[in-house]
Design a protein around this nucleic acid. Sequence first.
DNA 1: CCTCACACTGCAAGGATTTGCGCCAAGGTT
DNA 2: AACCTTGGCGCAAATCCTTGCAGTGTGAGG
Lengths: 346, 346
Amino acid sequence: MPGLAEIARIAGVSVSTVSRVLNRRAGVNEETRQRVLAVLTDLPYTPRGLGALQRTGVIGLLVPELSNPVFPAFAEALETRAARAGYSSLLCNTRSANMCEEEYVRMLLARGVEGMVFVSPEITNVEVPVGEAPRPGYYTKLLDDGVEMVFINGATPALDISDVAVDEQLAGYLATRHLVELGHRRIGFVSGPSRSLPSRLKRAGWSAALEEEGYESADRFVAHGPFDPAGGAAALGRLLDTVAPTAVICSSDQMAIGALSEAHRRGLRVPAELSVVGFDDIPFASYCSPALTTLAQPIEQMAAAAVDELLQRLDPDSPRRRGGSYSRVFRPRLVVRESTGPAERC
Amino acid sequence: MPGLAEIARIAGVSVSTVSRVLNRRAGVNEETRQRVLAVLTDLPYTPRGLGALQRTGVIGLLVPELSNPVFPAFAEALETRAARAGYSSLLCNTRSANMCEEEYVRMLLARGVEGMVFVSPEITNVEVPVGEAPRPGYYTKLLDDGVEMVFINGATPALDISDVAVDEQLAGYLATRHLVELGHRRIGFVSGPSRSLPSRLKRAGWSAALEEEGYESADRFVAHGPFDPAGGAAALGRLLDTVAPTAVICSSDQMAIGALSEAHRRGLRVPAELSVVGFDDIPFASYCSPALTTLAQPIEQMAAAAVDELLQRLDPDSPRRRGGSYSRVFRPRLVVRESTGPAERC
DNA sequence: CCTCACACTGCAAGGATTTGCGCCAAGGTT
DNA sequence: AACCTTGGCGCAAATCCTTGCAGTGTGAGG
């Protein structure tokens, strides 16, 4: 970890000047200040008293957004588990503040977090086909800096980072299978943006289940939309106008709720005329009407696994360090409620 | 701001020992360590390099929990507004981590936040009748330490802290008024815990509206429960078993959703046989069935007002400092949907 | 009762960071 | 053209924190 001297050398100024910049003292030229700050971006300086203060007892939690209730649910579960081990948590949501994830990570690091948990990290949000590895981006740099990280639902085999996840593909498969068993043949997929890896994985499961039966799983049975009720409503609308499915699976409960309301708006009875399956099992899913059939993520267990893994990596007494990353995949659980039923029309 | 020497003197140890405690170095007796840590609680030590580094560009956000979607909504709005001014946010929820608010505040301070916004602070959660001032607790100490704070929905006249709030009493009044105008006379109140000041304020509004008409607003028309769907369901259940109201108002949409499901469970048609009003207007309120009539908080505006106030206090060039606190009260907005209707039975 | 080992603590030396002071250069004034 | 003013920067002293080392006290074992 660099001292002021190191930074001063690189920036080509004296130690005093760096000190003045860091302390926001007057008497430094704006241009010089920018140069020093630029160096500080590459070499995040942590003051002695803080850098040495190893165990701050604080971890960072990064979630993409807060409007989908799964993320607050994950946050609470993670926080509770961390608290039990004496750690407190700092939560950041990257999307709403239109700040990129990397900036947030740097900020957290500068604030002295010991490690972090990423829920649905940015890296899962790229244009890359299933199976291929997305580019590691800045995560490798963090890894080199010795930052301890754990992902939730962010499997990226290319990175040496432990991952805790639900099997999204299996989730897609189970949902579709459930509908097939109810007699549906025309099953649509109300999907999140095509950039989203989880949606692509679910789609793979959906395809697999359909092809197993020789049913159609063509592109025209898939409609994309943003991850919110309005997006789900719009996507379902497009599907109903074109291929008229008798059942749909959705990328999230949020979207499923939108789908339910769109069906209601069109006077379509659920489940009699249209079956709907969601994903996540957010608390509201059971309070919808009809109550939503959905695939539950074992949030508590996943959060516990993620926190435990992070804490173990943080523990200096722990034998295994650096490099022992692994993936832990949980099985989603089908929760059948009222929004799915036998196919009536064909 | 104290140095190690000051802390050492008070704790009655040498500077070296304090340094060792701060750096989590071995070789310090547990008892001695506790004594030093105790002093550090009163005199929060910030390492030289960090304490001087005034503008970190980070503010803290404290919300009581995350399972009620209003709080994530506030958090997002706050975060978005802060980001626009170049500040990033650190979010903490105090209840789920069963850590007390004060600890979290200290932690945030130690992490270098410049100021904080408290949403529904702990202080609103005490056994004190409306009108009387709750004891200021540790907030005055923070104030003395020069910590900048703004409350949301945490009006406490005894403290010199700016507050941004909805008029909860008016909210209770408007909700009840709405039901009265629909012809209801037996109007119950599904309330949060009696410790909660917002619930007590709403109740005051409810009483006022009822007494205006000469209707009954006795204790037996009020049922308390925890702030979640189950609590709402249970509380409504008790009311239905005793006073059989034709309409109820609830302390939050969360509780109202529970009430809706309890009504459904009992085969009571809403709104034909029971009208329900919620509070908050969470996104899901419009996706319930029947869609929930509720009182909306102007979340965006409140968040903007709170952040702007905090940032102004943080600005060293700002003329008004310390002491110029004020309250800003917003008007709740009645959103009529499908869960309320004319009284049928009397 | 003596000795030894061990755990703590303070001392003081050794680094690291802050800051008063003075130098230098650029631009304006007489 | 000489001189003054001012902003910006480095030097070095002052200050603060860290750490190796030695001193002290306590308790167990002989």
